[in-house]
């Protein structure tokens, strides 16, 4: 009698435990993505003319650097999870010069790749609705006839005693760059560390074509110039190699 009782209690407990486990692993969870900024092989320090003009003379300083990450897709065994309203303004003016995205409610799955864009898609770029970090009254908005800046870099080039302002505002639909990263090992929500990416600010001037900041101190609405920088920023993000 007693044996029977304890056995049924034990199996009851076991079943509940199993049920809780099954419930938990079927629940959506969080996937984190962290972007750490560097400038070539140096750390990112704002407002300090410590970096050399990659294509010419002078040293440059960075006053502001921000860009849009959008349309994040996680590729898993069960299919592709498209993060809803994923418009994130990545900025690095904080003590760790990093930007973190926490994707909540990600369906339980094993994900082996992630894709996202630098810039925003055509529909969002032509809209004045506030979605995610998109805000038509923000610094990244040109005006409703032109759309959003995808990437903003402002600073100065200092050569002997001349200070030249540097203004790189890059947008236009054709300059959205979609990147794909195959993860070294599959990740599941909640169970893994953040996905680590490195953003190399210098790649904006060295990625595919080296830019002499003195010759090209600003890029705004000229399509060819914008395309040149977009080609470069398409190379600026990489998965951080784990030690």
């Amino acid at each position: 009698m007693r044996k029977l009782l304890s056995m049924s209690v034990a199996s009851g407990l076991l079943l509940t435990g199993a049920a809780i486990y099954v419930y938990q692993v079927s629940q959506p969870g969080t996937v984190r993505m962290r972007f750490d900024a560097v400038v070539g092989n140096k750390p990112l320090v704002f407002n300090d003319a410590r970096y050399s003009n990659p294509g010419g003379a002078g040293m440059f300083r960075i006053r502001d650097f921000q860009f849009f990450i959008s349309n994040i897709d996680l590729h898993g065994e069960k299919g592709v999870y498209r993060v809803p309203d994923s418009y994130y303004l990545a900025r690095f003016d904080n003590s760790s010069t990093s930007y973190q995205i926490n994707l909540a409610n990600v369906p339980r799955d094993w994900y082996s790749a992630v894709t996202f864009s630098i810039g925003v898609d055509e529909v969002a770029n032509g809209s004045i609705m506030s979605v995610g970090d998109l805000d038509p009254n923000s610094r990244m908005a040109w005006n409703w006839e032109v759309g959003y800046k995808f990437l903003l870099f402002e600073g100065a080039l200092i050569d002997s005693d001349t200070i030249r302002p540097l203004v790189y505002h890059v947008g236009f639909n054709e300059n959205r760059k979609t990147l794909r990263f195959n993860l070294p090992e599959e990740v599941a929500p909640d169970s893994s560390d953040a996905l680590l990416f490195t953003v190399d600010v210098l790649a904006l001037f060295t990625g595919k074509n080296t830019v002499d900041m003195a010759a090209l101190p600003n890029v705004k609405f000229d399509r060819d110039d914008a395309r040149l920088l977009a080609g470069n920023y398409g190379t600026m993000i990489s998965l951080t190699a784990r030690p």
Binding site: L89, D135, P136, N137, S138, R139, A141, W142, N143, W144, K220, F221, D222, D225
Partner: peptide, 25 residues
């Protein structure tokens, strides 16, 4: 932007298009 013959007063660089105030971030 002289390169594309766009004339501007650049007010929107700081005064947002609808609110005309500074940015909130």
């Amino acid at each position: 932007d002289v390169k594309v013959s766009l004339r501007g007063g650049n007010c929107i660089d700081c005064h947002s298009q609808f609110l005309t105030s500074g940015f909130n971030a």
